[in-house]
Design a protein around this nucleic acid. Structure first.
Length: 301
DNA sequence: GACCAGGGTAACT
DNA sequence: AGTTACCATGGT
């Protein structure tokens, strides 16, 4: 059994805000919630099962990665949780662009943009179209159970949720049938998922290639997949390819931006363009603070 | 039963 | 180029 790995005095970090702001779908809170400021989550990501705990500490928060060694933290989780980025500086740049964001950021100051695995992110946000977050999570779970690598029982301490498999690799998902995917409650998205899986499995579409392209060209290439439009492409760029200049506009962002900036019904592409102009290279991160702010307050709904 | 959900496509003007 | 019906499924 591996030891646990502890990281102390982490700033600008809150597990609940990071995981439950709609950027990822393969996790579950497992603690009772009875101890103030303590959180435990099971996360399935990066081809691994992780149980993680957050507690308050003197200067920031303390994270415990269970059954994790130093190599795994340094090479996998540090990047996944975006712990290399200076969110103090990022917040400053956002607030410089629009001082009204200071109050909005202060409502969820622990948000970070995860660096997710490309294939899972692509499929997850294809699923996301016209679905609510709890349903997206269910389909992601169903697809994992369908054809992902199974978790060996009792190998990870405190892993309490019923996640029984990893998200499938492209070849695993490409090998099942469209009806199998429909059986996962994917509905009309099933053929989209098959198309994406086959194109990634064949090597026609890859994270490595997309990372070398300018954001506009990478977006265009992603949108050549059936079922991937402007919004889904921007989510993949932001959440898995490190493009913080990508600004996804969903129903909530449309409502929030119309209330704060446009004061009238405005096309989504206009909103995207203007917000990118305002926030530049940190637009996608500004989007995340605005998204959860608007959703929590049901602005415009 | 109508309406909506972290939308996108195809078929219309 | 800009609008509109339709797409499965589950929740209110």
């Amino acid at each position: 059994m591996k030891k646990d790995y502890v990281v102390d005095d982490v700033k600008d970090f809150h597990l609940k805000e990071i995981l439950e702001c709609g950027q990822c779908f393969h996790f579950s809170r497992t603690d009772s919630g009875e101890i103030p400021d303590k959180y435990e989550y099971d996360i399935v990501a990066c081809g691994r099962f992780l149980h993680i705990m957050e507690e308050p500490s003197v200067n920031g928060i303390k994270l415990t990665f269970y059954d994790t060694d130093e190599w795994e933290y340094e090479h996998i989780w540090k990047h996944y949780f975006d712990l290399e980025s200076d969110y103090g500086n990022i917040k400053k740049r956002i607030i410089d662009a629009d001082p009204r964001l200071e109050k909005i950021i202060s409502e969820n100051p622990g948000i970070r943009i995860l660096n997710q695995e490309f294939f899972e992110c692509l499929i997850s946000f294809i699923i996301s179209q016209n679905k609510q977050i709890p349903q997206i999570k269910q389909v992601v779970r169903n697809i994992s159970t369908l054809c992902g690598d199974k978790r060996a029982a009792d190998t990870i301490r405190f892993f309490n949720s019923d996640f029984d498999a990893l998200f499938p690799r492209p070849d695993q998902l490409a090998a099942v049938t469209e009806d199998d995917i429909r059986g996962c409650k994917a509905g009309f998205r099933a053929p989209y998922i098959m198309d994406a899986a086959r194109r990634v499995a064949s090597g026609e579409l890859s994270a490595k290639e997309l990372k070398h392209l300018p954001t506009d060209e990478a977006r265009k290439k992603l949108m050549s997949v059936k079922g991937v439009g402007e919004k889904v492409a921007n989510c993949v760029l932001l959440y898995s390819l490190g493009r913080t200049d990508a600004f996804p506009v969903d129903v909530w962002m449309k409502r929030v931006c119309e209330e704060m900036y446009f004061h009238k019904d405005t096309p989504k592409d206009v909103i995207e363009k203007e917000m990118c102009k305002l926030f530049g290279n940190v637009a996608g991160i500004a989007q995340q603070y605005l998204f959860i702010y608007g959703k929590d307050r049901k602005i415009g709904a």
